[in-house]
Design a binder for these strands. Sequence first.
DNA 1: CTGTTAGCGCATTCAA
DNA 2: TTGAATGCGCTAACAG
Lengths: 375, 375
Amino acid sequence: MARKRTIDDIARLAGVSKTTVSRVLNSKPDVDPNTRERILRIVKEEGFVPSATATGLAGGRSHLLGVLVPSFTWPMIPDIVCGIAETIGNSAYELVLYSLNDKTRENGEGDVIDHILSTNLVAGLLAVLPGQSSKFVLRLHQHGFPVVLIDDQGDPPLVPWVGADNQCGAYDAVKHLLALGHRRIAHIQGPMKYVCSRDRYEGYCRALQEHGIPVDPALVIEGAFETPSGREATQAFFSLPEDQRPTAIFAGNDLMAFGVLAFAEEHGIDVPGDLALVGFDSISSSALVRPSLTTVKQPFQEMGQRGIELLLSIIEQSDQQRLNVRPAFARDFTRLSSSDIHEPSSAPPLRIQLATSLVVRASCGMQQRSSISSV
Amino acid sequence: MARKRTIDDIARLAGVSKTTVSRVLNSKPDVDPNTRERILRIVKEEGFVPSATATGLAGGRSHLLGVLVPSFTWPMIPDIVCGIAETIGNSAYELVLYSLNDKTRENGEGDVIDHILSTNLVAGLLAVLPGQSSKFVLRLHQHGFPVVLIDDQGDPPLVPWVGADNQCGAYDAVKHLLALGHRRIAHIQGPMKYVCSRDRYEGYCRALQEHGIPVDPALVIEGAFETPSGREATQAFFSLPEDQRPTAIFAGNDLMAFGVLAFAEEHGIDVPGDLALVGFDSISSSALVRPSLTTVKQPFQEMGQRGIELLLSIIEQSDQQRLNVRPAFARDFTRLSSSDIHEPSSAPPLRIQLATSLVVRASCGMQQRSSISSV
DNA sequence: CTGTTAGCGCATTCAA
DNA sequence: TTGAATGCGCTAACAG
């Protein structure tokens, strides 16, 4: 563990001014190749790493990326953060993690965002914020602060976003059930305030309609993306007259599908024999439950990765702009009237939609249901 | 979203020098009460938040805490980080997250630690680093850098640490099996390079010995803390002559217990009828598998919380020292000969051990096994 | 191509 | 009890 060196030390050792050292470190063009190489060698020998703090202060830009996540109890968060951390690790940035606690979860997202901004610590923000919370992120974006939304897109979709193709994922899931011969397919929706829930519902409807099956309102119930709501919805379905009950359920996410399994287990309903089941997300537990859950896999880790890549490109772009306009501009938010709000570029916001994939396991059975003749 | 104000703005608005404002912000004593109150009011009105970057540069100390975790795929990491994030959120610090990737996982922990130190970004480090990796952390600690280890303690235990009482937890688990009448109880160890694995093994031995049961080497196998190794160990156990097979297994963690369940499922072994099973950790999936898993619950969230609290107290203490000694001392590591290495305090390193609790579910059965007469 | 100058926003000496 | 001056380590403007 060597002594912490400053840029001045390196300059002294190399026999040049610290300005020159700074230039090499920032890959500026106008430096003599020999000098550059000598400096780089010394930097490596001494194991010199510039102070992120000082760099941030002097340059006006920080090397920290903010990541805002809701509760860690959401099972996909670790996967997303994993992709994020890995990608940031390969960059020159560091990861500052912000999270919502019980106090801020309800209506305090704005406070957290204000805090993130007022400390002026991070160069940009990657947020996993479903639903209406994204309006805070929208405000940031409109004021030119680099921001990317992950997972649930904003409504309307005005912010750079990385997420899965929820509609197609749901469509595939329901098509799978239809191919197995099911006709009475119920759907437990996620909270309809989330765009992703609405997308999945649309995929469900589209698949049914393509098969000429009308959407039965009695077979669609809004859940809360949590296990108990899945159980309650199933209870409601099985309170219907026997001939109106579903033979299959498409749950809006895996946690609610676990609720379906719990209800089935308690009431002696055989899955997949009496009831087929598909979930959404493919969280790790979905392979462990019995029967193992057929589900739609979201590429969470890739979402994190692509999200950071997108954020970095936006930051880079906004740095360019800031250097070409009058300085300190980016920090003065008060003076911005709505007409001053600038599009980060003339191009439309960048939006990346990733494909999902169906993970077939035991909860649907393997056979076609009522079409042995077609074999 | 107000304009980002500087300390100078506040000084101007209050009609005092920025030095005075700085004094108020840092709760220095020698300030006129009226002035203090006026400044605080303006600070609140303007929503002023000092720049963490500048504070760090000028004061020599940062308001960032480093948290180093291994792979996010470890199921307890989210819980630990949750406790960490919550606690940091209630402090004046921010959380910088470092993680090991595939490259650094093997022998690169030292590099990561060097990186953390050389960037000089964080005021202290909370590390979840099992096994020998802790030697890097020990080095930091000996050089006076505030460090706390979580989960698996170092060996020898010289670093401030927060973890669970693994030996008692294991002891309780095995006592539970003994109370159910089991006598041939196998143990799938975690990797023995981890102190926690050795502690659990000791708890296992102690419980058996208290009942006058010798430890049978054929019933103890070292696993890898991952599901496949649990399956393999079980296979080995069931390759024994029938009268030497275990009637119960104490798995070193839940993931390996899942491997036991998988093997049992494939080979028609009834759990808990033919084989009782206890895990360790109480990760969320342990309630979802069938049969649901009896396991030893570690208070992961509290571990994170207590870890941060301990780290903050150490940082505070080291700040005090630094102000009383010659400045810039803490950053100069080269000059330290081993005799210069100072104990952060004359007191022994702070070590916090938290109690575990047994979560009884279905995988052991509910009845005593061979003592109906005792009912 | 290179060095000099002047700050970034704050904490910490000093002197008043 | 307060203010002016100095510097943390670095980048960016300006001249050479």
